[in-house]
Design a protein around this nucleic acid. Structure first.
Lengths: 252, 252
DNA sequence: TTCTGCTAGTGGCCGGACCAGTAGACTGTC
DNA sequence: GACAGTCTACTGGTCCGGCCACTAGCAGAA
């Protein structure tokens, strides 16, 4: 009949007020909050309470304060840091595993390629071409340049897809996956062969994007991710990914 | 040559210590932290510093403290709450429009249905059936019950898909979409007809899930979302969604 | 045995204080 | 007038001691 109540903490109310001010634009990135001593009069609470609220906002990446700064805490622009943090924490805690990450990535990256193939501009296509060239050129030189160019390629795809959510989620998942298998992948003895193979596959995908063939771009991208990362998975985990390959959504 | 240094805050060091203790299992979910007064002697800092550290840990969903509890703050189990929080902040903050949200939702929900059709258990199927029944029963009664049952249905699909990332992102996007058009949808004069139609479509999707036909489940789910929300979009925005319909991934 | 009231200890919050650090004004020099 | 250096007012980080409402568990009453 009645609902349980959760007594309101003062600092939580302050966090809420400042958060909504950020959401509705009253506080834009780059703006400055009043100093802690000014805030305590505005909210009529003590400084400890203000500080606890600021700590929460800071840990959420909304504001940042610097000792001695006479301008007060600064409102930060949105960043994906929070997403990265919470996702890698889930990975560290074994709540989500590599298979789950890859399953998700196969879906989103596939969709991204599909959209990119449809809506890419010529300029975007040229940029992708360039990123691929950098990848090919750095096969022999270094793992680092290659990885960066690889990252850039996928970023360009996501950008061409024209969906910010897709872009961000792709970027986050991709980064977390790389973190997870970074050691294994850099130490692989057949690393150069892997890189060459990766280039070949990227070229195939890029070709589909160039010819504006969404279905093929999607299928190739999915298959590429699957085959590239499959060695790092257990046998038992493969079916959950395979169903995304030859079954739909490419309707084979 | 040299890297910039960031002076270490005391409370940050405390957060780190407790966090690593949680990660490496020294502190398991359900365990109790010492009281704030005890922690201040262990870390040899003042209570304010302890409290600021606890605020950060609390906002990250790692611990929770309750006033008057003689057992001290409790270590929480890992959950997707943090991911949920940062994801909804992304969706809210980055000024993504309805079309973009729906585009994303069509992709993820489609995939979820595809996976759910493949991997659902009989128990999950029964639960979906029940949710759909509740929806059908509440068409005449009230908008609220209907919306809740609708939500439950999609949650069950996402759960059956067996991917936590997919589950969280689906839930977030769905919630935000509903918030965006809540007013328009509850005030629609043909609301009962809409509800009936929605039930019919859900039944179709559920049938595909029952028969474990992933391709059909995916296609139907995508089409359902598109047609349900299309009236709330501009003409110009439709193509970006349509490409996800009759082109792949259902390979028509 | 059940219930009640008490109590020790808890987290939430307050006010004041000190310190190292910062930016901008202020000074003296050239 | 331009520029180095100092000075100052204020900032955030931390500490201390104190008060309050609340909770769990216990001792005593029924």
């Amino acid at each position: 009949m009645f609902e349980p109540v959760r007594p309101a903490r003062a600092y939580e109310l302050i966090v809420e007020q400042i958060e909504t001010a950020i959401y509705d634009g009253t506080l834009a990135p780059g703006d400055r909050l009043p100093s802690e001593r000014a805030l305590m009069t505005q909210f009529s609470v003590s400084r400890s309470t203000i500080r606890e609220a600021l700590r929460v906002l800071q840990s959420d990446g909304r504001v940042q304060s610097r000792p001695g700064d006479p301008n007060g805490p600064v409102v930060l622009p949105f960043s994906t840091a929070g997403l990265h943090k919470s996702m890698s924490s889930l990975v560290r805690a074994d709540t989500v595993g590599l298979a789950e990450l890859l399953q998700y990535r196969i879906m989103t990256e596939g969709c991204a390629n599909q959209l990119a193939a449809q809506f890419r501009t010529d300029a975007q296509l040229a940029a992708m071409q360039e990123a691929l060239a950098t990848m090919q050129a750095s096969v022999s030189s270094g793992h680092d340049t290659f990885a960066r160019a690889d990252m850039a390629f996928h970023d360009l795809i996501a950008e061409a897809a024209g969906n910010k959510l897709l872009q961000v989620s792709n970027e986050v998942v991709r980064t977390v996956v790389l973190q997870l298998i970074e050691r294994k992948i850099t130490q692989a003895e057949d690393r150069p062969a892997q890189m060459l193979d990766s280039c070949r596959r990227h070229a195939l995908v890029l070709d589909a994007v160039r010819q504006q063939d969404p279905a093929r771009a999607c299928t190739l991208a999915r298959r590429h991710i699957f085959e590239y990362y499959a060695p790092y998975l257990d046998e038992a985990e493969l079916p959950r990914l395979l169903i995304l390959m030859d079954a739909p959504p490419d309707g084979a």
